[in-house]
Amino acid sequence: MKTIKILSMLTFIIVMSAFTVNKTVMVNGYRVGDVAEDFKLMNVDDKMVSLADYRNAKGFIVTFTCNTCPYAQAYEDRIIELNKKYASLGYPVIAIMPNNPDVQPGDSMKAMKERAKEKGFTFPYLMDKEQKVYPKYGATKTPHVFVLQKTSKGNVVKYIGAIDDNYQDAKAVKTKYVENAVNALLEGKEVPAKETKAIGCTIKV
């Protein structure tokens, strides 16, 4: 009997582990038009940041990014430029680092602080320490941008996707998806491309 019990336990464990490994990444999270929940996350200056802190903002460029992903690195300067251009117009960049630093040590809070200082980030660079924010958004990779517009209903998701159409060369970009989205919102127009896709690094859990 004992053997059977152990055997069935073994089967159970194998089956369970198989499920964990094979679990397809469910693409849940926000769709365009959904109201995004606020969060409270630690910034690189050791202060907690929420969207609600930005009383005068018209919206946000919420950007899931990190130190280590080559695609995120390729976009770093462009994220800095986005904040320079749009923070004063009411759409600040809020960068969130979604990776588990135990899996990706280069994304620890210490490393985040160093990178923010090195690059002179003028926007908050927050750590999704409990990894509860990125699944709510449905972020699957870095970089992954969500443009939100502040409305009476809350912060409504208006754009999801890539920053532009050329990760390799900022000068060769043909379509600036995020800029086009924010410009349209500022002009009270419909966002031209509401969702785009790009290659990115899987979020490390």
Binding site: D165, A172, K174, K197, A198
Partner: peptide
């Protein structure tokens, strides 16, 4: 091919773009 927004959906509509 840098224009991933064009080719990712041609591989599969449901691909968000993360690898593997």
């Amino acid at each position: 091919d840098v224009d991933a927004n064009t080719w990712i959906p041609k591989v599969d509509e449901n691909w968000s773009g993360s690898i593997p």
